[in-house]
């Protein structure tokens, strides 16, 4: 009988992630991160549990890197948790024991296509893509915004390192938008 085991592909539909360089920037498809939304339930306080597990819970508009996990704010009492995929493939199974019934946790790993844009002059690139003021917000900021009609999260990890998380089904459109904008600017 034929082998029926399942082999994953990247958001752009390949075996391996894509990486391109245009002028001073590099755009890389990133697949090494597991994602889950973490929402504090009504009347609960998950601050201590999160602290104990080394999971940051940044305030509105912010992203924070912890020891293993990072997190950015999604909406009131709700965060997106980032963890290394290799060790946290079933990220919900890792988070459930930490928060028990105090939080609602939903796997989001495959809901998003992530492209990391690295290099100099990133604000000049992003001003063609979204109305999020990269220069003013600076490193450690994260926001949802629109890029070419796509609802995306922009995470400023460092001045020269920005992640864009867009709907996985539109990975090709988003990648095309990033690539086109980079060619336009650089």
């Amino acid at each position: 009988m034929a082998d029926l085991s399942l082999k994953p592909i990247t958001p752009l539909g390949n075996d391996l992630p894509v990486r391109i360089s245009i002028g001073p920037v590099t755009i890389s498809e990133v697949v090494d991160t597991a994602l889950a939304s973490l929402a504090q339930r009504m009347g609960q306080d998950i601050t201590a549990a999160a602290k104990g597990a080394g999971i940051p819970l940044p305030p509105a508009g912010r992203w924070e890197q912890g020891a293993t996990c990072a997190a950015f704010w999604l909406s009131p009492e709700m965060w997106m948790i980032e963890a290394p995929f290799a060790s946290h493939e079933d990220i919900v199974a890792h988070l459930k024991p930490v928060f028990g019934e105090a939080a609602s946790i939903t796997e989001q790993t495959d809901a998003w296509a992530r492209f990391d844009v690295t290099g100099a002059s990133l604000p000049r690139l992003f001003e063609l893509l979204c109305n999020y003021d990269i220069a003013r917000h600076g490193a450690g900021s994260a926001s949802r915004t629109m890029m070419e009609h796509l609802g995306c999260y922009v995470v400023i990890r460092a001045a020269d390192h920005i992640s864009v998380l867009g709907p996985r089904s539109s990975a090709q459109s988003l990648f095309h938008a990033l690539e086109t904008a980079a060619h336009s600017v650089f």
Binding site: R41, M42, M78, E107, Q108, D110, P167, R168, S169
Partner: peptide
């Protein structure tokens, strides 16, 4: 005050 949380998983 309802204890209910929502998130889309269409793409997941």
């Amino acid at each position: 005050d309802m204890d209910v949380q929502l998130i889309s998983t269409t793409e997941a």
